Simulated scan of single mutants.
Amino acid sequence: MPANENSGKSQALSDDTKQVVAAFEGLGTDEKLALLYFIYKEMGKSITQAAPAATDPQLAPKLLGDYLQLSNEQQLAIMREIVNREHTEYSHAYGVLKENNQLMVWFAWAQAMGHTVVDMPSGYENSAPSNDVLNRIKALDFEGQISLLRTIASNMGYTDIQAIPTQAETGKTSSL
């Protein structure tokens, strides 16, 4: 199942943040990839940096190890598969990670772009809708940015792991 079918429930999103998530979801695949790159270029400036201490790179050896050995064309294809929630080996490896580790994967890839990760095409111009989303992300407060980034990250990849229904959803209390 695409990762987004179980995501978003745990994120406390404001209406503004929900609108920015919807705007991001309305972008094309390559626009989303470019926007993720620009988001990570802005981290620590106008966009809140994700907490690297809340991640564990050892949980993503395929995405942070094997992936780096692939050709630029293969890497780009895998990024597209993840964004499009395709049922593939790498998309599944991404989809089973928790949001913070998913963010860590994108951060590591953005940091390695042009070195061990496929780079942005030279002369790439961000689209007007993508620039609009980036500016809207910059305008969010700290909590809004983190919630938005976690939601965007969790809406990608493929997983067949299903969320456990809550007590509110089932009407039953959990038993030990």
Rank of each mutant, 00 (worst) to 15 (best):
P2M: 14
A3Q: 12
N4E: 05
N6H: 15
S10N: 05
S10I: 04
Q11D: 07
A12E: 02
S14N: 02
K18P: 01
V21I: 08
A23K: 07
A23Q: 02
T29K: 01
D30A: 14
D30I: 07
A34G: 01
L35P: 02
F38V: 06
G44K: 01
K45R: 04
S46G: 08
T48V: 09
Q49L: 05
A50Y: 11
A51K: 04
D66N: 10
L70N: 06
E73R: 13
E73K: 13
I78L: 10
R80P: 05
I82V: 07
E86L: 04
H87D: 03
Y90C: 02
S91Y: 12
H92Y: 11
G95C: 05
G95N: 09
V96R: 15
L97E: 03
E99K: 12
N101Q: 05
Q102V: 05
L103H: 11
M104L: 09
V105Y: 05
V105M: 02
F107R: 03
F107Q: 02
Q111G: 02
G114F: 08
T116S: 12
P121H: 14
S127T: 01
S127F: 06
N131D: 01
V133K: 09
N135I: 00
I137Q: 09
K138M: 00
F142E: 00
E143G: 13
L149D: 08
T151Y: 15
S154L: 02
M156V: 03
M156L: 06
G157K: 14
T159D: 00
I161R: 15
E169M: 12
G171T: 00
G171A: 04
T173D: 06
S174C: 04
S175Q: 12
L176S: 14
